[in-house]
Amino acid sequence: MKREHAWRVFAMEYNDAMVSLKGEEKMAPSYVVTPLGSKVNRLFFVGVLTDVEVMSEDGSFVRAHVSDPTGVFTLFSGQYQPEMTEKLQSFDVPSFVAVTGKSRSYQPEDGDAMYASVRPEQIVEVTASLRDQWILETIIHTKDRIDAVKEASSMDTVTADALLNVGFYKPIAEGVSIAFDHYDRLLVEKYVQMLQDAVDYVSMGEQAEATTTKLEGSSSESGAGTEPKMPTTTVDEQDEEAEEIVMNVIKSQEGDDGISWDEITKKCEKEGLDDVRVDETLNSLMDKGLIYEPVLGTIKTT
């Protein structure tokens, strides 16, 4: 049996999948086919582990969620993977994790719905920087598939060979030729927007980090001098004050589903914080692990 490679797919695209392929033979691999033509048997992603829930009394079955800027992956691990099931329960939430896992799908008998989930094979705590790298890498992979879907829509008959001939990678050519029969290609626009949002998400984090580094730099400089020109506490106090305002707004409004980024900005402006300051503060709170973003644009406390 040939080893299956791991696809880079955002949670939104993965969860949108409505097609699964099962081999006829007993040991044949099964696949979840996504709207943009990832033919997923294995996938690799980095995101925020937001919760781990024990689903059976003896602790042999757990469900966990890992969020990326576009949505949430659902992970199940059961009695046949006792080590992984135990390991999942040992993580602090939230934390950044990288996951290699197998695709799973569930179709209730009544109705057309399909639920794609992940059986984790490997899970390791990682840094925020690796999460950003994964987002950027996954944007590039997703963009390649969007290109292939667009190319396919201009073809009379869509086959893997036809896509190979115009230069698409073999795995993409195969996957898109299958997906094309099952999905409405108008969906593409939605994913183009998803990619834009995802890159904005990363650069926003980058800017916040740059600001933090600058502040840290100035405070250590002044600390080293004999005559501090400006008391460093002022900066810290201002930060603390802003953080308190923002936290209060989130706590009072988040409910079960969290509160949108825009809503926070609006509410905080009334408290005297401009939008740049709110963005900086939200990012700093996220760095401290006090809040997280379960879905792009929505904030919850941890």
């Binding site: 950003d132 950027l136 990619l195 890159v199 650069s203 980058e206």
Partner: peptide, 13 residues
């Protein structure tokens, strides 16, 4: 380097 990759990704998009 995330920063330079962001620029690369933007131009791709």
């Amino acid at each position: 380097d995330v920063k330079s990759k962001v620029d690369h990704v933007r131009s791709l998009l």
